[in-house]
Design a binder for these strands. Structure first.
Lengths: 245, 245
DNA sequence: CCCCGATTTCCGCTGAACGGAAGTCTCGCC
DNA sequence: GGCGAGACTTCCGTTCAGCGGAAATCGGGG
């Protein structure tokens, strides 16, 4: 194992459930001897990749320097920045939870999320990953994913709620419909009491148009005004597409 | 220079003006021999700290893994997440550009920013740093900063616009007023055509109350409804304070 | 005061990282 | 299509930076 790999192993020890770690935990989770972890931690600390939770605290946390760097990642700097004003406009118009997501392998990666106090509580956080088959944005991304991704995902439809679609044939038909009609929807397939609609964001590259992201929103029920919501999303998606770098 | 430091030097080569770099640029900016840079980028690549802009492209960019990690930083995961719904509520009520910022050394670090299409264009981006003496949130943070920070900043008041305050005495008086009245304002001191108000976000820690962040908004003019804007900010700041972890 | 677990420092051995140099790829230009 | 310049990748012998066991230090609870 190379030095860099060790340093990266230390950083990997942090996750959503472990945002603060002591030296000992850090060493154990990274699989490194204490003395080694201590030395490496020192270097990361002096560079700002790690910080102490507060001065003198025994807890290490991810540092601002890493946060800074992360903001330069293309997933964030291009798409998210362009989309941001559109998301806010949608939010102001609907007060629903608004999601911006991309596909990362066989999962949905949430790139941005807006929600105020009136919104339905949802599980997604910025940076979290969820299955492709049971969320609005997931279905949109899946419908436009390469064949091998679709094959893998259709072959492993985990049930999340009683309404999650677990029959490949049924989901497959929905994906077809999503492509035809230009939007996807879910009804309590990810969490009870939450319904969603979502539309694709396309980027006209040379030669072909590809779907680079999905834009969706979560509401308590779709009964009332699905057409209005879909229309709002499509206007925004269109605007985002035109502003993409 | 240690190995870790070299790897980190490579990552530091990226900044807002250089979001994509070729191997050669990367090596030059990090001050490393080409062969060394090549080996290290290989490791960073395989771990996901770096990615190629698109498969086969000669450009390196910051990877998703770093973005993921950055989201675990306390600046983001604690403060920002709690504040987010409040910011959206303010935005929905005012349609102004809303800022959430902390002090990072002798600068303001913008942690979150909302702006829609109706908002005044502003220079700040999420993750960007600006001087403490000429922005609304900056003045709030400066007013509650340790004496040595105040001394350094008051000793180096760079002029940004014709309205920037560059006399230490005048700024000092404003800081005093900010502490007394509970809010700060600027009038075209950072950019022409932009005025701002801002309030502190306090955290009641054991023993003393400390100012951990500032909440502000930017509007074309303060004439009309400053009291209303300040009130809206104060309600939100109060709410955020109470929800802080 | 003493104990125990966590953290920090020390230091001699060693193998992983270093980087010059040589080989390969990829353009653009003639 | 051949040639040259620049960018990228691979190789490999040397060496020194990192390794980690062990010992010292810290700190809080009994």
């Amino acid at each position: 194992m190379s030095v860099t790999a060790r340093a990266l192993a230390l950083l990997s020890a942090f996750d959503e459930r472990h945002r603060r770690l002591t030296l000992t935990e850090l060493a154990r989770r990274a699989g490194l001897p204490l003395a080694t972890a201590h030395r490496l931690t020192g270097e990361l600390l002096s560079w700002g990749a790690l910080e102490r939770l507060s001065p003198g605290s025994p807890y290490y946390v991810i540092g601002r320097r890493i946060w800074d760097l992360g903001l330069l990642a293309p997933v964030q700097s291009g798409l998210r920045q362009v989309a941001s004003p559109f998301l806010h406009d949608i939010y102001a118009a609907t007060l629903a939870t608004v999601h911006l997501a991309v596909r990362d392998g066989d999962e949905v990666l949430y790139v941005d999320r807006l929600s105020g106090h009136q919104s339905v509580p949802v599980v997604s956080e910025i940076g979290s990953r969820l299955p492709l088959h049971c969320t609005g944005v997931g279905k949109v991304l899946l419908a436009h994913a390469p064949a091998d991704v679709q094959r893998r995902v259709l072959g492993d439809l985990r049930r999340i709620t009683p309404y999650t679609i677990t029959q490949p044939g049924r989901l497959s038909a929905q994906l077809e419909r999503t492509r035809r009609e230009g939007y996807a929807q879910t009804v309590e397939e990810m969490s009870l009491g939450g319904c969603s609609v979502a539309v694709p964001i396309r980027r006209p590259t040379t030669g072909k148009v590809e779907v680079v992201a999905a834009l969706g929103l979560v509401v308590p029920t779709l009964k009332r005004d699905k057409p209005r919501l879909v229309a709002a999303l499509q206007v925004a998606a269109e605007g985002i597409s035109r502003s993409l770098p």
